[in-house]
């Protein structure tokens, strides 16, 4: 019996590897998150009219996350004008801090699209271990790059990648 299971698992892996060879792109999983006014939003509806999207996982208690979002906020207008990029900030805060997300976002004068992932369904579906974790999606909604942690200056590199994606160039890690 064990052998059957093992061989089935092997087949599955083999098959998935083949599938990945032909289809290298990864789309965003369809998961329900919530908007700040309590509405359900399915991530399959996320789009930016063919322009790139940055998805940033963060939390109100995560200092480097907030530093990253503040630093991007300082240059966000320029980024948008140049590339049309949109930043989606997904908060993984639970009910302890969920009510503070909206006031914090507005208090810092951020203009990002913000969603709440209280049950961490999206975080799990994207294999995010720790925050901050940032994804870059191309105009077709395919994940082309991701990064864990934030260091001062990382946003410059991110913008270089956004410009490449916006120009339709491929990204090599």
């Amino acid at each position: 019996m064990k052998k059957v299971v093992v061989s089935l698992c092997l087949s599955l892996l083999f098959f998935a590897a083949q599938a990945q060879n032909t289809e290298k792109t990864r789309k965003l999983p369809a998961v329900d998150v919530k908007t700040l006014d309590g509405k359900v939003f399915n991530t399959s509806q996320l789009s930016n009219n063919g322009k790139p999207v940055i998805i940033s996982f963060w939390a109100t208690w995560c200092k480097p996350c907030i530093t990253e979002l503040i630093n991007i906020s300082d240059v966000y207008e320029d980024w948008q004008k140049e590339t049309g990029v949109k930043l989606v900030a997904v908060s993984i805060d639970d009910v302890r801090n969920a009510a503070k997300v909206g006031p914090l976002v507005n208090g810092k004068a951020w203009t990002y699209d913000v969603y709440l992932d209280q049950n961490q369904d999206l975080k799990r579906a994207l294999n995010v271990n720790n925050v901050p974790h940032t994804f870059l999606l191309n105009g077709n909604g395919e994940i082309v790059w991701q990064h864990n942690a934030y260091a001062e200056g990382d946003e410059k590199r991110l913008f270089e990648l956004v410009k490449k994606v916006s120009a339709g160039e491929a990204i090599s890690h």
Partner: peptide, 26 residues
């Protein structure tokens, strides 16, 4: 089982359902 994995499943992958099969992890 292995045979099925090697020959049958890739054929199924032509079907819409299996085209975007992926494995990810952490």
């Amino acid at each position: 089982g292995l045979l099925a994995g090697a020959f049958l499943l890739p054929r199924f992958s032509q079907a819409q359902l299996l085209q975007d099969a992926q494995i990810h992890g952490d």
